[in-house]
Each structure stands twice: as structure tokens, then as C-alpha cells.
């Protein structure tokens, strides 16, 4: 943030702060802190910075109250009794508003990523491919399995190629999920071909003692699709060859 921006925000925070203290209502402050959060979160402002400003303001105001009423101790006590809970509530409102906004953004992003990350694509009649890219955790593996199973039913798929070229490594938990996905697909009558296993993933699968009779693996995606086409009874022939034959 630039100096001017900090000054402008600090002024706004102060105005809102004083208004909340004077009126005892927090709606304006709440909407201001939400609005502030929306603006500053994308710029990477941290929770401690925001809370720090509000707490600082609380202390500054408290000091000024001290300075003003130090001669009348009884009055000062009464004023502080009123001031402290209100000031704490203000700090609370701002901090909660900030954190809620951040959580909302994280949730949105998670959903967006999840939807993007597991496309089940039909490349031919009865043939689906599922390219998996990025980090696999148990939750994503579970979601992916559910999506694939629904896809198999909806597209009446007989063969599925799961390509994990884009997955660097998986732990044994996720490896077990992969095996379960293959088994569950078979229960729906679909054959799964897994392609693009990295040496690390192959190692993990060997470590968990996967039954290789259940796993149908082909080196790369292209090979996997060719194998799938063979299973489905397709034969891909270059155009020139067919015309020569005619």
C-alpha cells in the first residue's frame, strides 16, 4: 500500500470506529470491513496487519481518554467501562470480517480448481479419457472416482483411459484409491487402462502390493487410446492406405 492509501484507509477506519463508538451500531463498520477486505485481500495484506491497525487505534483512543479524564478517576472508570467492550467488539468485527472474506475466496477457488481438475471426456463412442494433472490427495481422488463412475454410466462407457502423466507422485493412500477406482469402474462393466505412470508412482504401487492382474497399464496416453480402440474393435488406418486398397 502507498502512503496515501494507508492514510486514506486509516482515516476511514477512524471515522467508522468513532461512529461505532458514538452510535453503538456496528452495521456500517461491518460493511466497511467487508468492503475493505475485498479490496485489500487480493493485494496480499495479512490478517495481522489489519488487526494491528485496529488494535493500535483502540490503544491510541484509550490513551487520549486517559489524558482527558485523568483528573477525575471515577469518571474515567465509567468511560472505560463503556469504551473497552465496544472497542473490543470493533476489533472483533473487523478481524472476523477479514477472515470470513478470505475464507469465502478460498472456498470459491477450491471449487473452481476442483471442477477444472477432473474433466471426464468422451473421445469416442463408449470410450472416456480422464487426464489427471497436479497433486492428488484422498479427497480429490474420491471426488474423481465419483465423477468417473457417473460418467461411465451416463456415457455407457466400456473403456476408460486414466492418464496420470501430469501427476508426479502419490502416497500409498492415493494409490489405493486409484486401485479402487479401477475396481469400481469394472463393477460398472468398464475396463480401465492407466497410462503415464511415473517411476515414482510405479514404485508406490509396487510397495502397496497392487495386484497387477487387476491393473491394465500402458506406457503413454497415445498407447492407451490405441489399446482402448483395439478393445472396442476399432481399427485406425491412414487415409492413403485405404484409398490405395480401393
Amino acid at each position: 500500500m502507498t502512503k496515501e492509501e494507508i492514510f486514506a484507509e486509516a482515516t476511514s477506519v477512524y471515522d467508522n470506529y468513532v461512529e461505532a463508538l458514538e452510535t453503538g451500531t456496528f452495521e456500517a463498520l461491518q460493511s466497511y470491513s467487508r468492503n475493505l477486505s475485498e479490496r485489500i485481500i487480493p493485494r496480499g495484506v495479512q490478517t495481522d496487519e489489519v488487526v494491528g491497525i485496529v488494535l493500535l487505534l483502540r490503544d491510541v483512543l484509550a490513551r487520549s481518554l486517559f489524558a482527558k479524564y485523568q483528573t477525575d478517576f471515577r469518571l474515567l472508570n465509567r468511560i472505560l467501562d463503556a469504551y473497552e467492550p465496544a472497542a473490543n467488539r470493533i476489533a472483533n468485527t473487523v478481524a472476523v470480517g477479514f477472515v470470513q472474506e478470505r475464507e469465502r475466496i478460498i472456498r470459491e477457488q477450491q471449487e473452481a480448481i476442483r471442477e477444472l481438475s477432473t474433466p471426464v471426456l468422451q473421445v469416442r463412442e463408449r470410450l472416456l479419457i480422464l487426464p489427471i494433472i497436479g497433486v492428488m490427495d484422498p479427497q480429490r481422488a474420491r471426488q474423481l472416482t465419483e465423477q468417473l463412475l457417473r460418467g461411465i454410466r451416463a456415457n455407457r462407457a466400456r473403456v476408460v483411459v486414466i492418464d496420470i502423466t501430469g501427476v508426479a507422485a502419490i502416497n500409498s493412500n492415493v494409490a489405493n484409491h486409484l486401485v479402487q477406482t479401477v475396481e469400481a469402474s469394472r463393477l460398472l462393466g468398464a475396463t480401465v487402462i492407466v497410462t503415464g505412470l511415473s517411476p515414482e508412482i510405479a514404485q508406490t504401487l509396487v510397495n502397496i502390493g497392487v495386484d497387477l492382474g487387476k491393473m491394465n497399464t500402458v506406457g503413454d496416453l497415445q498407447g492407451g487410446i490405441e489399446e482402448a480402440e483395439r478393445l472396442l474393435g476399432y481399427k485406425v488406418v491412414p487415409l492413403t492406405e485405404t484409398t490405395q486398397q480401393v
Binding site: T145, E146, L149, R150, I152, R153, R156, R158, Q180, T181, E183, A184, S185, R186, L187, L188, G189, A190, K214
Partner: peptide
């Protein structure tokens, strides 16, 4: 699909049993 998912999670081996959609 949900049933297949639950079966494999439960650890049910359905080997040597033919299945179709």
C-alpha cells in the same frame, strides 16, 4: 455408481465375477 464406490471402499473383492453396465 454409488454402490460400486461403497463396495470397493468396504473392501469387497468381486474378482472372477463378470459385470456389465
Amino acid at each position: 455408481p454409488e454402490v460400486a464406490f461403497a463396495m470397493v471402499q468396504l473392501g469387497i473383492a468381486f474378482e472372477d465375477v463378470a459385470t456389465a453396465l
